[in-house]
Amino acid sequence: MADLKMTSVDKIDVAYVAHLARLFLTDEEIRTFQGQLDHVVAYVKKINELDLKNVEPTSHAVMVQNVFREDVVKPGLSVEQVMSNAPATISDQFQVPKIVE
């Protein structure tokens, strides 16, 4: 099983993945999660014991297709409503720290 061989050497890199997910963790959190998730990953890996070569993946539990809406404009939210939920605003926009491109 090629998959098993590969996964046995791979270990979750909590610090890297947390950054990818934009979660700034403390060192202690990283240590704790690393230990816990190593166990979880070792456990969930066992699905690769199965022979899945000729199995189609299921991404939807129901066999539905082609659900469309017609191209018609419907009223949305008012700018007041939208801004009232915003943590910070500027000129009816969502204010964020300066974006550097």
Binding site: D3, V44, K45, N48, L50, L52, V55, T58
Partner: peptide
């Protein structure tokens, strides 16, 4: 690098 071993496999097991 991990998608196939985890997510895709899981979707296949879901079929089973």
């Amino acid at each position: 690098g991990y998608y196939d071993a985890y997510y895709l496999s899981a979707q296949k097991v879901r079929t089973l």
